[in-house]
């Protein structure tokens, strides 16, 4: 029934060749080239000159780079906790049978994700404007504050605003991912639990969450990667007081595309790459660790 030899017809390679060619030229090529650039001094006009590890040495002494890592982490943590909590809660609620017009809610909650990040950045910057922002007008009209709040003069408030843009933008997307996960959980488990007399809360904790774990891991990893690359939204807000909303990628952008230090920009990019790789590996290791404990 089975031939002893697998038929290794080379035509298969032809079919996959276009992808690899495009990948080598437009993805791997630039990736390797920027790795080379990270060892050079290049302003874009001259020919790149090889300077060894100087860019990486500078990176390790660049206090602003470390600050940008810290900022990115703070913004990410401030956004991810409410984001996933809201997404999961909404997904659990919308998964209930008695909710009417579910699809309308799916669309509404997903809507912020369709707005481009730049637009969101501008919108929030205007909303939280010191003198003319609608948020201050509202707070003053309600009598909560007497003088307008200078939001963007406080490092923490600025970070919180950027984090809320991210939260606002992504909770709907994560909610849909969670919903997809919920739908894959077999109905009979719930029925069995119901017969055993479990209440809604118990089924959520004992059945839904454990079975949702693969989806949670997926969301965690994608949000770690996405969260490390925050760029558009804070760019519209600006660097913030004390550079508090300067994220890692913004720092890269400033070096490469504002000061035209392509070599140093490439070194920052590789610094970010290493950090994201570590963070991703860490989050995968964490989830595996849990698995082992449970197993």
């Amino acid at each position: 029934m089975f031939s002893r030899r697998i038929d290794k017809s080379p035509y298969g390679y032809l079919f996959i060749a276009p992808f690899f060619l495009v990948f080598f030229i437009f993805d791997l090529g630039p990736i390797l080239y920027s790795f080379y650039l990270s060892f050079t001094d290049w302003s874009g006009f001259n020919t790149p000159t090889f300077i060894g590890l100087a860019n990486y040495e500078r990176l390790l002494q660049d206090t602003l780079f470390f600050k940008s890592i810290y900022n990115t982490l703070i913004i990410w943590i401030l956004s991810i906790i409410p984001q996933l909590t809201i997404a999961l809660t909404l997904a659990l609620i919308l998964h209930e049978k008695f909710i009417r017009g579910k699809h309308l809610f799916h669309a509404i909650f997903y809507f912020p994700n369709m707005v481009t990040p730049v637009t969101m950045g501008v919108l929030f910057a205007l909303m939280f404007d010191w003198q003319n922002g609608s948020m201050n007008k509202l707070l003053m009209a309600l009598g909560i504050v007497e003088d307008p709040v200078y939001w963007f003069n406080s490092p923490f408030l600025s970070q919180l605003i950027v984090a809320s843009i991210l939260m606002w933008q992504w909770f709907g997307f994560n909610m849909l991912v969670f919903l997809a996960g919920l739908q894959s959980i077999p109905e009979d488990l719930y029925e069995a639990a119901e017969i055993d007399g479990a209440n809604k809360f118990q089924t959520a904790i004992k059945i839904t969450l454990p079975l949702l774990r693969p989806v949670l891991i997926f969301t965690m990893i994608t949000s770690v990667i996405g969260g490390m690359q925050i760029f558009d939204q804070p760019l519209m807000i600006g660097k913030g007081p004390e550079n508090s909303t300067l994220t890692m990628v913004m720092h890269l952008y400033e070096a490469a595309f504002v000061r035209y230090e392509y070599g140093y920009g490439a070194a920052i990019a590789y610094g970010i790459f290493v950090l994201i790789a570590i963070a991703t590996a860490f989050s995968m290791w964490m989830t595996k660790l849990k698995e082992k404990k449970e197993g």
């Binding site: 080379p10 035509y11 390679y13 032809l14 060749a17 060619l21 030229i25």
Partner: peptide, 22 residues
Amino acid sequence: KKNLLFTMLVFIFAIGTLVGCS
């Protein structure tokens, strides 16, 4: 022969793309 043909095809394809870039 088949392998040769395949390698050549890939090579031509690659060169063509590279020429387009320069």
